[in-house]
Design a protein around this nucleic acid. Structure first.
Lengths: 235, 235
DNA sequence: GGACGCAACCTGTATATACAGCCCTGCGGA
DNA sequence: TCCGCAGGGCTGTATATACAGGTTGCGTCC
């Protein structure tokens, strides 16, 4: 496929991975020290270090300074999924994205929202938007924003810019939490997403932090039959 | 909290992140070149390189060799979720894990399984196991394994070792794909998971590869009200 | 026999240097 | 005017070297 010669540090990574995959080194086993790799593979220590460091980062190995490098207990290694911006995802598939604004207003914060955002004020900004892919509803986005974080939120044209994009501009994103679950939709959600009778909803609850404070909380409802999260993990 | 002085490369990362968070550098903006960082921060190029490389890895920046380094278009930066081993997760919560074996057998492969595993044989190994947390069913695991990859699969005691753990031992894991969706459970699934009437199922379809071949395919059904995937992403 | 201390080994970080290959701009020639 | 090429800047990789600090085990001293 490609004639590109593998970088040396990649060869070192494969050298280690081969031994792990073959079962020669099981979970908890000691891996060659950097100095041993240097001698056996005739690479510099910096190259060996980079290879090992990247394998640690990917969860394959773990290191204890002063002690050694060990094969990680793979039972606890997680495989990542990615949550992407819905508008960008639709456009990358070459389809048309349209945002239908259901509501953008200022409401008295429900108690669960107050708690989740640790609100200090009585009111909260809310936007309800349905994202369509080729005019088929794909995501219902119900978002609550702390007015102190984004005072101009109610004036944004959400047909042109997504709430996420706007918040990124006005409030530097520091931290994001996602919780994903499957639910039976409330009738309001089923109607807005034009769901069939036997269709579930993939619900992502998304909380963001900015400048050390809670910034926004969102329910992202996805039609079960039309949306999936996908993740591939190599090694 | 800690008096540990931050490593230099971490300071460089913060230097760059601060400018991005403050809005000084928006998405697509050009970031200082490694040489400029070297001059301005009085670090070596290797240190600047490591800092930038790690920010690229985490999705904050993107680089084009020969051209420059740019703030990643955050609209497309994904935030990761982790899919973990269910038994380890339950035990880490301090709860009791029990695996109830419903079936372990060799069956004629259904056509969809044949296609997903790219099977060359007519038969496939199948295991159906319900994982309980404190005797409450949490996950229904229906797994199909290529007999050529794990010939001894039918003899495993799945009450003692999870299918995932066994496969890791006999077939070195090279690649994993996960697809997550929300579905309305079939009645068989609802019964085995002891689901309520208004409960959806979080379905993870998991495909693994080993030694360049498809190795296994699994449906992991999770009770909607008792299970969620959670991911936190900093920066 | 036990406790302390030191030496050997390990990882973690940092620097200076080098060369290859890609990208873009600007200049010069057709 | 337009095309092509050369050069400067940038990333990507690789090496040799250095020092700090944690860990472990062995040997000595009490």
């Amino acid at each position: 496929m490609s004639a590109a010669p593998l970088p040396l540090y990649e060869k070192v990574k494969h050298h280690v991975l081969r031994r792990i995959r073959s079962g020669e080194w099981g979970p908890g086993a000691r891996v060659q020290s950097e100095h041993e790799l240097v001698r056996e593979l005739s690479v510099s220590r910096m190259t060996a270090n980079r290879a090992i460091r990247e394998l640690v980062q990917s969860g394959v190995l773990s290191r204890i300074a002063g002690s050694g490098t060990f094969v990680a207990d793979l039972r606890s290694a997680g495989h990542p999924l990615q949550i992407r911006n819905i508008a960008a995802e639709i456009r990358e598939r070459g389809h048309a994205h349209r945002a239908e604004v259901i509501a953008v207003d200022r409401i008295v914060a429900p108690s669960d929202i107050r708690a989740r955002l640790k609100l200090r004020t009585r009111h909260v900004f809310r936007s309800i938007i349905v994202h369509h892919e080729n005019d088929v509803p794909l995501q219902l986005e119900e978002r609550f924003v702390d007015p102190a974080v984004a005072p101009g939120y109610l004036d944004v044209d959400f047909g042109a810019v997504t709430a996420h994009e706007y918040l990124m501009q006005v409030a530097p994103l520091e931290r994001v939490e996602h919780v994903v679950r499957a639910v039976i939709p409330a009738s309001r959600v089923a109607r807005l997403l034009a769901l069939g009778v036997r269709e579930a909803v993939l619900l992502i609850e998304r909380t963001t932090w900015s400048r050390g404070r809670h910034a926004s909380f969102a329910f992202l409802h996805h039609a079960g039959g039309r949306f999936a999260l996908r993740g591939v993990f190599d090694l």
